[in-house]
Simulated scan of single mutants.
Amino acid sequence: MKLIVLCLIALCLAQPAAAAELRVDLGHGVVTYRTKALLERGDARIIEVPADVAFHRPMRYRAVPLAALLGGIAAGDHLQFVAADGFAAEIPAALLLNRLGGEAWLAVEDPARPWPVLPGHGSAGPFYVVWTRPKAARIGPEQWPYQLASIRRLGGVAERFPAILPDPSLPPDNEVRRGFAAFQRTCFACHTLNGQGDARLGPDLNLPHNPTEYLRADLLRAFIRDPQSLRRWPQAKMPGFDTHALSDADLDAVLAYLRHMAGRKPAR
C-alpha cells in the first residue's frame, strides 16, 4: 500500500501544474481562457520586456496581445483587473487599445516552464499583464497586475465609488483633482477609501484615520517613496514609488487629495 502511495505522489510531482483559468467578463457573458489554449493561439509570441516591473530585470514571455482578448471594448470603457491576492487594477480601455504607444500583453506561464519566484510573493503567474513601450503611454507600476484571475468591464471609478470623490465645487485645475487622478492610478489598486473600492490588499486610507492625520508630510512622502525607510518590515508588500512611477508634483497632489478627504469622511 505504501509503495502505491509513493508511486502516486511521484507521478503527481512529475506532472506539470494544472492549467489555470482566466475569466473575462465584458458585459456579454463570461469567457474563460485556459493556459493551454492561450499558449497555442496563433497570435501568441515571445516578447522581450527590458525592464519588468515585478522582476526588476529583463524578462522574456510567451504572450498574447491583450486587446485580442477584449473584443468589443471602446476607448471610453473602463476595465478592472483582479489578482488572486486582492489587488484590483483600474485601467481605462484607451490604454489597452494601443493608441497611445504602449502595448499591453497577457503573459501566460507555461506550467512546464514556470517563471522565477517573486521573493515574498510567490509566483507571478499564471497570468500577468506586461507592457512593451510603457513609457510612451505613461504606464505606471500598478498597471502591471500579476497573479491575474479576472478581467471585468465596469463603470468608471467615480460612478461606482462616489464616496472617494473630492468636493465637486473644486475648480477643474485644482491640485486636489490632480491628486485624485494620481490616487486612482497608484493607490486604489491596493487600498480602499471611505470604505469604498474593490481592492483588499491594503488598509483603508481614510477610516478610521487618514495618514495625513498622524504622519508628518515629510515622513508620509518618504514612506510612499520607500516604505522600508519608515518601517523596516521584510514581509511588507507595499512597493516604493520612485519619481518615474510618481513624479514629485503628482506625489504632492496625492497628499493634497488625502488631506482634503480627511475632511470628507462619511457620517457615523
Rank of each mutant, 00 (worst) to 15 (best):
residue 107 A to G: 07
residue 187 C to E: 05
residue 87 F to H: 05
residue 37 A to S: 12
residue 171 P to A: 15
residue 91 I to T: 05
residue 127 F to I: 10
residue 170 L to G: 05
residue 258 L to Y: 08
residue 176 V to I: 14
residue 105 W to H: 04
residue 5 V to F: 06
residue 89 A to W: 01
residue 188 F to V: 02
residue 11 L to V: 00
residue 16 P to T: 02
residue 251 L to E: 03
residue 173 D to Y: 04
residue 224 I to W: 03
residue 214 Y to T: 04
residue 240 G to E: 06
residue 159 E to A: 10
residue 9 I to G: 05
residue 32 T to D: 10
residue 131 W to H: 07
residue 103 E to F: 03
residue 215 L to N: 09
residue 222 A to P: 05
residue 75 A to F: 07
residue 164 I to N: 10
residue 20 A to Q: 07
residue 93 A to C: 03
residue 64 V to S: 12
residue 229 S to Q: 11
residue 28 H to P: 04
residue 234 P to L: 15
residue 248 D to E: 15
residue 26 L to A: 11
residue 40 E to K: 10
residue 121 H to W: 15
residue 191 H to I: 06
residue 12 C to E: 01
residue 201 L to N: 01
residue 33 Y to A: 08
residue 52 D to P: 06
residue 28 H to V: 02
residue 228 Q to S: 15
residue 244 H to S: 13
residue 74 A to W: 12
residue 140 G to R: 14
residue 122 G to A: 09
residue 117 V to G: 06
residue 266 P to R: 12
residue 116 P to H: 09
residue 10 A to E: 01
residue 160 R to F: 02
residue 128 Y to R: 08
residue 175 E to P: 01
residue 114 P to S: 04
residue 196 Q to H: 06
residue 41 R to P: 04
residue 19 A to V: 07
residue 235 Q to E: 13
residue 53 V to C: 04
residue 245 A to I: 09
residue 64 V to G: 08
residue 260 H to P: 09
residue 257 Y to K: 03
residue 230 L to M: 13
residue 54 A to Q: 07
residue 111 P to A: 06
residue 211 P to E: 01
residue 184 Q to R: 14
residue 108 V to M: 01
residue 232 R to W: 15
residue 215 L to E: 02
residue 151 I to S: 08
residue 62 R to C: 12
residue 227 P to M: 08
residue 168 P to R: 11
residue 30 V to P: 09
residue 17 A to I: 02
residue 168 P to L: 09
residue 67 A to K: 10
residue 36 K to N: 08
residue 186 T to W: 11
residue 44 A to G: 05
residue 18 A to T: 07
residue 147 Q to K: 13
residue 248 D to G: 12
residue 203 P to Q: 14
residue 252 D to L: 06
residue 2 K to M: 06
residue 81 F to G: 04
residue 158 A to C: 02
residue 61 Y to D: 02
residue 29 G to K: 12
residue 49 V to G: 00
residue 233 W to T: 11
residue 99 R to G: 15
residue 232 R to I: 13
residue 232 R to H: 15
residue 122 G to P: 09
residue 121 H to R: 15
residue 211 P to W: 01
residue 60 R to H: 15
residue 99 R to S: 13
residue 224 I to G: 00
residue 185 R to G: 03
residue 212 T to N: 06
residue 19 A to G: 13
residue 241 F to G: 00
residue 32 T to C: 09
residue 153 R to A: 02
residue 246 L to S: 03
residue 232 R to M: 14
residue 232 R to D: 14
residue 148 L to N: 03
residue 149 A to H: 03
residue 140 G to H: 12
residue 128 Y to H: 14
residue 224 I to P: 08
residue 86 G to Q: 06
residue 261 M to L: 07
residue 254 V to Y: 11
residue 8 L to S: 05
residue 194 N to K: 04
residue 10 A to W: 01
residue 252 D to Y: 07
residue 199 A to Q: 02
residue 252 D to Q: 10
residue 98 N to Q: 10
residue 106 L to P: 02
residue 183 F to C: 05
residue 184 Q to A: 12
residue 164 I to S: 08
residue 206 N to Y: 00
